[in-house]
Amino acid sequence: MLEKNALLLLLLATVTILVGTVVTMVVPFKWINDPKLAIASVKPYTPLQLEGRDIYIREGCNNCHTQTVRPLLSDTERYGEYSKTGEFAYDQPFLWGSRRTGPDLARIGGKYPDAWHVKHMKDPQSMVPRSNMPKYAFLDRPLDTSLTEKKMQALKFPYTPQDLAEAKGKTELAALVAYMQKLGNDIPWRQANKAAVVGELKNPFQDNLSVLPEGKALYKEHCAQCHGDKLQGEVGPKLSDMDKPDAQVFTTIFSGSPNAGMPAFGDTLGKERTWKLVTFLKHQQRH
């Protein structure tokens, strides 16, 4: 019968398609973005951040970077606490991405100082050798703010005249950096998760010269972009004649120093490699 009645076929096919659609796409609206899942500290984007986000979208950064940390060790150890629904309440569109050619960015906010980002965006390979990210030096041009207010209204985000003024006269790059600095920075995870240093802080490699080559290699890979190839300092301070106790150097590397813009490396390096780095750094100072 169906082989003969085109209209019936059309109707039945529509109904068939709608069943799964309703259950898995329409009904979940009731669950997702439930006010109970809101996170109080997550605020809408400011005009500058929103413009930065639009540049992220325009350049298609989401083709290579994801913005969701999964509750899996390899994700949480690398990027930080896993993502919750409430974090995305203001994301229209969502920017979770589907491919991690580059690292996840959901927790990038506050990880590096602005100066690091500016350098990195202009010439990624200068900060991360062998990265395959394109250069975005052209973003160092004036930001077009003619639509900013309309955008804020369209999304029903609150703003003040000062907020709008803040976005004026900036470069596209500055807006993009402002956006990135918000990501994951408005939930209290970084403080809460700050890698606690437990146990005695004694350098197991003190005066063990055999770890110097590895320490040097770690320095080149993780530190040189900010502190300079010869420890002369750039984005971060000079390290060449640093005279601090091993334990303090260890803590700064392991747990970071958020106010100074120094990222925490405890999750990436672990204790042992951090101590090797400390040994390398202290060894430079003795010469």
Binding site: N33, Y90, F94
Partner: peptide, 24 residues
């Protein structure tokens, strides 16, 4: 979507909802 101008619009859905609609 919510149009802003001829060349710019925002998704009508937010966050995890938008993700779920998108991958449906």
């Amino acid at each position: 979507m919510i149009p802003v101008s001829l060349t710019k619009s925002y998704s009508a859905y937010a966050g995890a909802n938008d993700a779920n609609v998108q991958w449906w």
